[in-house]
Design a protein around this nucleic acid. Structure first.
Lengths: 191, 191
DNA sequence: ATTTATACTGTATTTTTATACAGTTGTCAA
DNA sequence: TTGACAACTGTATAAAAATACAGTATAAAT
């Protein structure tokens, strides 16, 4: 990935923050006004270089069709941090939690009870469940029992499917395949 | 919240999926083409009702300035689930994990080590850190010690600031205020 | 029985937005 | 010392996109 100049970084930062604030990208004119450029071409050139250097994705002819390559809709994972304040985190980057792809067919369930404490899932935690993915033996899955959703380990045996709680005090429950909601792909806890 | 008709739900669904796919909202014309409306006013009317019912936010005169009130950039928290498949989750809804607001000034750090196990934060977990927020006594915070970032409890005493590990085997460390990165607002674990 | 809301057609117009092309100035590396 | 890149000014134009207003038909609510 090619490095950005100071100015290019400023432009990218403005776009990123704008998208973060409004949910859509700024128009050329809005960028121009913010930086007090006297020509719209100043914007065009900057955007072209940001696209060429791989920091922006731009869909031609469409209005406000800008996306940052590392959108804040995912949470940037910062591995290393440069010492000495002011700490610049934006430039270090090891990927994203929750990319748009991760968020396809996903929902969250709030956990009540202690049946998954052995798996470090506690009362009040949220489990993040992905629909329409293959579930395998040993996966933690969400399923419907009666009128409620529960989180259990999956055990497949021949033609039978069991839900196994992490807490050995509870017994496995047999269920039908169509009651599986999806695979648990993450746990989240508000601190 | 007012209920949506079947048709209105279809429109909202299209917009939501479009935003999810492209990162920006569809234009009126693109909505018109998808639903094969012969008049642009069909779109205008539908969007107005979606705005009036509180499902959409629309910034007037701007192009593609649509936001869904419950964007998929946040994960919908599903509390109750209607029994009997096919299970309709879209209509039940208790809020969102990670709204755009939550994601302002946020980054993630991957945890190494066991110093926060007592707080149920384990090796390999990600802590989600928010910058530019007030930190209080007892908060879990991220700070820089030497060249590394660490997660500890905060203890303020008169003019001194200490970082206290959850594990009592480790001792508190005194630091300066400007080395605080932010407040830990969540913990995430990939399953 | 009358109003209100839904779900559109049809046409016209304005505003916003992106793009195109011709230049200028300064910097930094080969 | 030349040539590529950066960072713009200036003007013009095409296109995309939103809006405005006048209607119609049908169903649901009061």
């Amino acid at each position: 990935m090619k490095k950005l100049t100071q100015r290019q970084f400023e432009i990218l930062k403005f776009i990123t923050q704008f998208i973060n604030k409004y949910g859509y990208a700024p128009s050329f004119e809005e960028i121009r006004l913010f930086f007090k450029f006297k020509s719209p071409n100043a914007v065009t050139c900057h955007l072209n270089t940001l696209v060429n250097k791989g920091y922006l994705i731009k869909d031609s002819t469409r209005a406000r069709a800008l996306r940052t390559r590392f959108p804040l809709s995912g949470i940037p994972i910062v591995g290393k941090i440069a010492a000495g304040p002011p700490i610049i985190i934006e430039n270090f980057f090891e990927g994203s939690l929750f990319t748009p792809d991760d968020l396809m067919d996903v929902f969250a369930l709030k956990i009540t009870g202690d049946s998954m404490e052995q798996a470090h899932i506690y009362d009040g935690d949220y489990v993040i469940v992905k629909k329409n993915v293959e579930v395998r033996n040993g996966d933690i899955i969400a399923a419907v029992i009666g009128e409620e959703a529960t989180i259990k380990y999956l055990r497949k045996e021949k033609n039978k499917i069991f839900l196994v709680p992490a807490n050995p005090a509870y017994k496995p429950i047999e269920i039908k395949e169509n009651l599986i909601l999806g695979k648990v792909i993450g746990v989240f806890r508000k601190v």
